[in-house]
């Protein structure tokens, strides 16, 4: 499969990369590992005039511990994240999510965490070859006015299938976005537009520089379902984080629950999570109730456009959330001993 034509730049430092992005804006795309971008280009889904490669920007590849957070460069490979003891111990959900992305040979060495978060949303009506799409009317995401996944939808409901984003949102991560003139930090749970055509609230001249994961005494877990675990994207997944109360360690003070692969963005389900406040870490009935509530909420967002049937994906949300809660509470219990 041939790639469309484009010009290529390989800036030697961040400043040069930001200059290029500023000059070319919508015409340019950042090339990190390319494992999402090049596939979309081969299918003719996007045709950037210029690719700006991060290959020489070693300064974007690091994992650092500070007193209250972990900082990761956006260009850090998934392989480096998986082999980091710090991530494994202090941000377990992220470790689990990265480990489950595709197969070793596809993403782990070339794929980056920044590219994982910023990969485009997917839909089985849209992620098809030029030829396939040429036989029918274009949908919203393809520049048309209809949606094949949901009758009469006024917007695109393509699905965010990023494993990393779901786990990072559960961990309360922030993103540092840099542009020539500016640098800003946004909470990942505020980073999405609710529009599947352009899911990320980010300007064309901005570059994702860093991901910040706060450190605290909470424990996290990530669970996902995919057909062939080695190559397929998740069709339902959940990331959770449970924070114990200061003076009663077997009681939950705060919970975060995020359901992924069920909507245009990872779904931050605050209501279901709030129900777990002040519950015991052994209260499995409460976990089940929260998990079922997540399933009901996710079902209102999801459309039938990735992997399996909608019914199956919706039903599997509850076990994903339940298992993640159980594993995270187990980790809290282990921390007490």
């Amino acid at each position: 499969m041939l790639l469309p034509r484009f010009d290529y730049s390989q800036p030697q430092n961040l400043e040069a990369a930001l200059d290029l992005l500023n000059a070319h804006r919508e015409d340019a795309k950042i090339l990190a590992g390319g494992t999402d971008l090049l596939v979309r280009m081969k299918k003719g889904l996007i045709r950037p005039k210029r690719l700006i490669s991060l290959k020489s920007l070693k300064e974007l590849s690091y994992i650092k511990k500070e007193h209250d957070c972990i900082r990761m460069g956006a260009g850090t490979s998934l392989a480096d994240i998986i082999s980091s003891d710090l991530v494994r111990k202090k941000a377990r959900a992220l470790f689990q999510a990265c480990e489950k992305v595709g197969a070793v040979t596809i993403q782990h060495h070339r794929g980056t965490i920044g590219g994982n978060i910023l990969q485009d949303n997917r839909c089985h009506h849209y992620n098809q070859s030029d030829f396939h799409r040429s036989g029918r009317q274009a949908c919203h995401k393809d520049g048309g006015k209809i949606c094949y996944a949901r009758e009469n939808a006024d917007r695109c409901n393509s699905t965010c299938q990023s494993d990393g984003a779901t786990a990072l949102m559960a961990l309360g991560a922030k993103l540092v976005l840099a542009s020539k003139e500016n640098e800003r930090t946004v909470d990942l749970d505020q980073f999405y537009t609710a529009d599947g055509i352009k899911p990320h609230a980010m300007e064309a001249h901005e570059l994702l520089k860093e991901i910040i994961v706060p450190l605290n005494n909470a424990q996290s877990d990530y669970q996902r379902l995919a057909y062939r675990s080695a190559i397929d994207y998740p069709i339902a997944c959940a990331g959770v984080q449970l924070k114990p109360s200061e003076n009663q360690k077997d009681q939950i003070e705060d919970a975060r629950i995020v359901v992924g692969a069920m909507g245009r963005a990872p779904l931050f389900l605050a209501q279901a999570a709030a129900f777990l406040k002040d519950k015991s870490i052994h209260d499995e009935a409460a976990f089940q109730k929260a998990a079922d509530a997540c399933m009901d909420s996710a079902a209102t967002f999801a459309v039938h456009n990735v992997g399996s049937t909608l019914e199956y994906r919706c039903e599997m949300v509850s076990p994903m959330v339940f298992r993640a809660l159980k594993e995270a509470s187990q980790a809290l219990e282990n921390a007490i001993d």
Binding site: K42, H109, R110
Partner: peptide, 22 residues
Amino acid sequence: EGVCGSCTVQMDGKPVRSCLTL
């Protein structure tokens, strides 16, 4: 498009998909 692995080569000892590597 990165799915099958038939194009796998090594770069610095690591297996990569050569169909998705410029």
